[in-house]
C-alpha cells in the first residue's frame, strides 16, 4: 500500500521538473550562452579596422589592461557615479520625508492615494522619450528658456546642453524624478511594518517626533535602506537611456556625461568585441559583489 502511494506522489512530482523546463531552456539559450560567449570574447583581440576584421586572436588579459590604460574607464565610472549621487541623495531624502508623512497616522493626510499615484507616475515613463522631451524643452530656444526670459529671470538663453554641470544636473534630475516615487513606496512599506506600540511607548516616555524618527524609525528601516541604496547603485551603474538620448550618445560636453554602459554601447556598435567583452565582465563582477551585499542583509533580516 505504502509503496503504491509514494509511487503516485512521485509520479505527480515528476511534473515539477517538467514545469521548470521552459524557464531553464530559455535561460540557457538567451542568457547563459550569451554570458559565456561574452566572457570568452573578453580574452580575444577582435575588432574592426575600417572594413577589415582583426582577429579573433587569443590575447589573454590584454583587453583588460587596455581597458584600464588611458583613464577613459575611470573617467566614465566617475561620470556615472557623480550623476548617480546627484540624483540619489535628493531622492532618498525626499522619499524619507514623504514616507514619514504618509506613515504618520496622527497627520491623517487627505488625498494620499492621489499623491502616491502622481509621484509613482514618472517611474513608468519611457526613459528615452522622457530624455527626448527634456532635450527639446531645455534647448537653447526651447520652452524653458522662453519661460525664464518671459518671466524676466534671465536675459540670454541658458545653453543647457553645452555646460558640463547643466547636462549632468539634467540627467540627475530626470533620474531623481523617475525614481523618488518608487523609493517612497518602498520606504513607506518598511515604515508601516514597524509595530505601532513602539511609537506609542516612545510617545508615553515623552520623546519628540524628531527623536522618534532618528531613534526608532531610521534604525528599524536599516535593512530596507540598504536594499534601496544597493539596488539603486546597481541601477545607477546601468545608467544609459537618459544620457544616451539627451546627448545623442556623445556624452558631451567633453564626454563628461558618458556613462559606463554608453561606453559599452559604443564598443558594441563599432564591433570592438574584445573591449566590449572585457568591460561587460568588469561590470558583471562589480554588480555581483554589490548583489552579494544585498543578499547578505536580506538573509539576516529573514533569520531574525
Amino acid at each position: 500500500m505504502k509503496t503504491g502511494k509514494t509511487n503516485v506522489v512521485s509520479k505527480y512530482n515528476r511534473w515539477g521538473y517538467i514545469f521548470l523546463i521552459p524557464f531553464f531552456v530559455v535561460f540557457l539559450i538567451f542568457q547563459l550562452i550569451p554570458l559565456v560567449n561574452t566572457i570568452y570574447n573578453s580574452f580575444f583581440e577582435n575588432y574592426m579596422s575600417g572594413l577589415r576584421r582583426v582577429g579573433p586572436n587569443f590575447v589573454g588579459f590584454q583587453n583588460y589592461s587596455a581597458l584600464f590604460k588611458g583613464g577613459d574607464l575611470l573617467q566614465y565610472f566617475g561620470n556615472t557615479m557623480i550623476m548617480w549621487i546627484m540624483g540619489f541623495v535628493p531622492q532618498i531624502l525626499l522619499a524619507l520625508l514623504l514616507g514619514a508623512w504618509f506613515a504618520n497616522p496622527s497627520l491623517r493626510l487627505k488625498g494620499q492615494r492621489f499623491f502616491k499615484t502622481v509621484i509613482y507616475l514618472p517611474n513608468l515613463i519611457m526613459a528615452s522619450a522622457f530624455a527626448m522631451l527634456f532635450f527639446t524643452l531645455f534647448a537653447d530656444g526651447g520652452p524653458i528658456n522662453n519661460m525664464l526670459i518671459q518671466a524676466g529671470m534671465i536675459a540670454q538663453p541658458i545653453k543647457f546642453m553645452s555646460n558640463v554641470w547643466t547636462v549632468r544636473s539634467l540627467v540627475a534630475f530626470m533620474n531623481f524624478l523617475i525614481w523618488f516615487g518608487n523609493t517612497t513606496i518602498l520606504l513607506l512599506a518598511g515604515m508601516l511594518g514597524i509595530p505601532a506600540d513602539l511609537y506609542e511607548a516612545a510617545e508615553v516616555d515623552g520623546a519628540s517626533p524628531t527623536t522618534i524618527f532618528f531613534k526608532i524609525t531610521l534604525p528599524l528601516l536599516k535593512p530596507i535602506f540598504i536594499y534601496v541604496i544597493i539596488t539603486s547603485l546597481i541601477g545607477g551603474l546601468q545608467m544609459f537611456d537618459v544620457p544616451q538620448i539627451l546627448t545623442n550618445g556623445s556624452g558631451d560636453p567633453m564626454r563628461s556625461s558618458m556613462t559606463l554602459i554608453m561606453y559599452l554601447n559604443k564598443h558594441l556598435y563599432s564591433k570592438n568585441y574584445g573591449m566590449a567583452g572585457a568591460l561587460s565582465v568588469l561590470l558583471l563582477i562589480i554588480t555581483g559583489i554589490l548583489s552579494l551585499i544585498v543578499f547578505k542583509f536580506t538573509a539576516k533580516k529573514e533569520a531574525k
Binding site: 550569451p34 559565456v36 560567449n37 570574447n41 546597481i234 546601468q238 561587460s280 544585498v294
Partner: peptide, 13 residues
Amino acid sequence: MIPTQVTALGFIN
C-alpha cells in the same frame, strides 16, 4: 541580478 547589458555582446552574437 545579472544586468541584461552585461550579456548583450553574447546576445547579439
